[in-house]
Design a protein around this nucleic acid. Sequence first.
DNA 1: AATGAATGAGAGTTCATTCAT
DNA 2: GATGAATGAACTCTCATTCAT
Lengths: 220, 220, 220, 220
Amino acid sequence: MSAQPRTARGTRTRARLLAAAEDVFASAGYHDASIVRITEQAGIGLGTFYLYFGGKQEIFDEVVDDLNARVRHAMTEAARAAEDRFDAEREGFRAFFRFTAQHPALYRIIRQAEFVSPGAQRRHYERIVRSYAHGLAAAQDAGEVRPLDPEIAAWALMGMGELIGMRYILWEAGGDGGTGGAPRDIPDHVLDELMALIQRGLAPDAPPSAATSREDVRHD
Amino acid sequence: MSAQPRTARGTRTRARLLAAAEDVFASAGYHDASIVRITEQAGIGLGTFYLYFGGKQEIFDEVVDDLNARVRHAMTEAARAAEDRFDAEREGFRAFFRFTAQHPALYRIIRQAEFVSPGAQRRHYERIVRSYAHGLAAAQDAGEVRPLDPEIAAWALMGMGELIGMRYILWEAGGDGGTGGAPRDIPDHVLDELMALIQRGLAPDAPPSAATSREDVRHD
Amino acid sequence: MSAQPRTARGTRTRARLLAAAEDVFASAGYHDASIVRITEQAGIGLGTFYLYFGGKQEIFDEVVDDLNARVRHAMTEAARAAEDRFDAEREGFRAFFRFTAQHPALYRIIRQAEFVSPGAQRRHYERIVRSYAHGLAAAQDAGEVRPLDPEIAAWALMGMGELIGMRYILWEAGGDGGTGGAPRDIPDHVLDELMALIQRGLAPDAPPSAATSREDVRHD
Amino acid sequence: MSAQPRTARGTRTRARLLAAAEDVFASAGYHDASIVRITEQAGIGLGTFYLYFGGKQEIFDEVVDDLNARVRHAMTEAARAAEDRFDAEREGFRAFFRFTAQHPALYRIIRQAEFVSPGAQRRHYERIVRSYAHGLAAAQDAGEVRPLDPEIAAWALMGMGELIGMRYILWEAGGDGGTGGAPRDIPDHVLDELMALIQRGLAPDAPPSAATSREDVRHD
DNA sequence: AATGAATGAGAGTTCATTCAT
DNA sequence: GATGAATGAACTCTCATTCAT
């Protein structure tokens, strides 16, 4: 069972373990991330680990929750500075991609959680969706978003972000899966395309003329 | 090193191993999927495994490629029967969700590939994106889709499908992460919402006349 | 249980197995010499092996006995051509070294026999010693060799040959233990020194003057 | 990778492993000497082994080096107490045989090293030869040994010791290859014969009369 | 608070041997 | 006579976890 540190020194030790664990989980994967490796990276003794965490799975969960809180914080902060809803959405995505670039651990860890800790994984996604759906609902009330089920939309949007981030941030970074190279921002044109898709979908613009419908287009 | 069987009996054995591996990888995860478990499930001797596969990772890769081929086949088949592009897209997604419901292995296995076999994972996503982007490009030429970068859009669409599938197929199924329960189709309203999003995005409909806005709709 | 072949084809198969086994045992060592490898090298099917040999150990023993017969044959032949006993001994050694150069398998296999088949090892050494001791005894009777225990001397001589061969034939060949390089004869000066040692031992030549003997030295 | 123990307890554990390994390698042979057996004999847990040794081969090498150091120490100590060179040689051999009797591991292990660790084997022989050759060279300078190549002679002498030891110590002991029975000293008459051979070789004593030589004998 | 020696279940893998074809 | 698919015991090695110091 984990224990909260009682001294300042203990607090530092615990924090170092958490940071080391994020690193090691991200670079080696849950199963190849041995406790020895984590403690070595943290620069503390092996046995000390069990003073602060109940086991491997427990520290994993905590790392997931920590990353989740941080990415949501980054997104909210970015969105708050925005002027309108569309801008907010754009900045939220940008913040998400930036966080991904700076903390590839996020992806790599979340995906592993599938088996390691399904609960933690679910928590992660649901928390993001919740705030997303909340924003959408508000926007709907404000007439900025058309009538739709905010939760379904939120899951879809998150999915877009997830795979676009994987492809254009993680894979670009290392060229081989993201294990090397410097983090980079999302290219502008990718973000532009993504936002356009989110706003308008795939459908061609309605022609200026009155009664446009898909049937008409087809005759063309 | 894997070897191709030289007899009919060998071919059967190899196939049984692959099927068992898909099962075990999906239910237990790569790391807890021991060779013993796979061979037991396949009903063959432990040593026999190494007659056909070089090791765990090798059979994993083959399972991934196999699932990938099958899901793409299912999607293409479904889309081919469609009458127009919109319908094709809808049926493609439906097929994908149905496949997900019937083979939860797909998700569970792909996500693990992150560390187990990054190459296989990448191959999987890229293959799907390729045919997706191809379809979008063709639709663009036909004027059915507005001008956009087909690859970026393909990644985004795939992401939507991925998370919607996770949430409304996998999680619903078992209620706890997908380890039990009967597979079910995607609920109609979810698919409807998704398709609407893909077609039109979030933006409110452009008012036909001057002052139309959501406020009007609401009074209804 | 091994079986003698009943057909000409069978005889050839058996011989090929034996030859392959000698090769593989010599290059890989008993334990890393798998039956598969032996049969592959022999170009026959795995199961066929058990038609001719009862098992790994059985073919090993046969290889040892075969090598033993051949090295003894080579030595006897060489000695027979010699003119006197000293010459015979020299030529016997030379033949032994030449055989060693051409069949490093001899050493490598005999030494492994220590555990694999102590009986075969013992047989090998004893057979060589027997003929050696026999020759020494005869030479003694002829007054060409001073009175001594022929068996003890035979073991000692064989030991000299063994380590000289190891050092100046096997190790020279590959430079690293004998796994490569072309076989070479024993250098003349090495053989000369060895023969001198066998004939005269280490002691300095008795001084030409009359009564010198080791007794004198001792008084000192 | 092996590691040096950091505590007194660790040092004791490591030593116990080394001793057990010597035992097991000697009685079972390298390949049948499983780590389990070694740790069981040492009375420690299996995993503990890997705290101190990188693997089987690594502990094997260390056992070889250890035995080598000990046998050379025994020989040098014995020789040091001797009064003259001849005596020194005799006592050196006797010490070697005694060590052999007390540590049959020496032979059994060295011979296996042929494949298991050629480097260790070579090191073993070369170290012994080096000190041997050194002693011979010194004796030569003192006029106690006739002119000869000390290295070649050293290899030959070592070979004598090796096979005499095998035959009259190891094989006598158990009667069946040395796996049982009490260790015993080399019988005096064997040592006497050996020393005589080393001193004087095989040649008959020069007859007291003047011009005797082998040429004369031949005419006979 | 901190340490690292010790543990053993369990993993992947090899291979001598059997036997149906 | 010849084959190779099948087997499972046995091996080496890893690592989360415990505990005496």
